[in-house]
């Protein structure tokens, strides 16, 4: 759970953003992240809250690592933790 998961902000509605994680869209809370977030930004999400805006120059490298993790089989602990984080935003929007 230390890991968090990166996603792309699709739309911002006050303190809730719709964030796309590998095609899955979830609401993410923005009341903790300390930089203004807008559509197109990437954020690192932990238990349904954005904890950091990922600087544009780091996005590609960050995603590549998670890509490799998600390719792990269904029983892989790290892939599972990432998938759990992806579900961490409650109900679908």
């Amino acid at each position: 759970m230390c890991l968090g998961v990166p996603g792309k902000v699709i739309e911002v509605n006050d303190i809730v953003a719709t964030v796309d994680f590998w095609g899955v869209r979830r609401p993410v809370m923005l009341n903790i992240v300390d930089a203004p977030v807008e559509a197109g930004d990437y954020v690192l999400v932990h238990v349904g809250f954005a904890i950091r805006k990922i600087p544009p120059e780091d996005v590609e490298e960050t995603l590549a690592f998670y890509d490799s993790l998600l390719r792990g089989d269904a029983e892989d602990l790290m892939s599972n933790d990432v998938r759990t984080e992806m579900q961490s935003s409650g109900e679908d929007t």
């Binding site: 238990v47 809250f49 935003s89 409650g90």
Partner: peptide
Amino acid sequence: IIYSPWEVVQ
């Protein structure tokens, strides 16, 4: 079981 504290509110 929840994934995010936000779900607790729901």
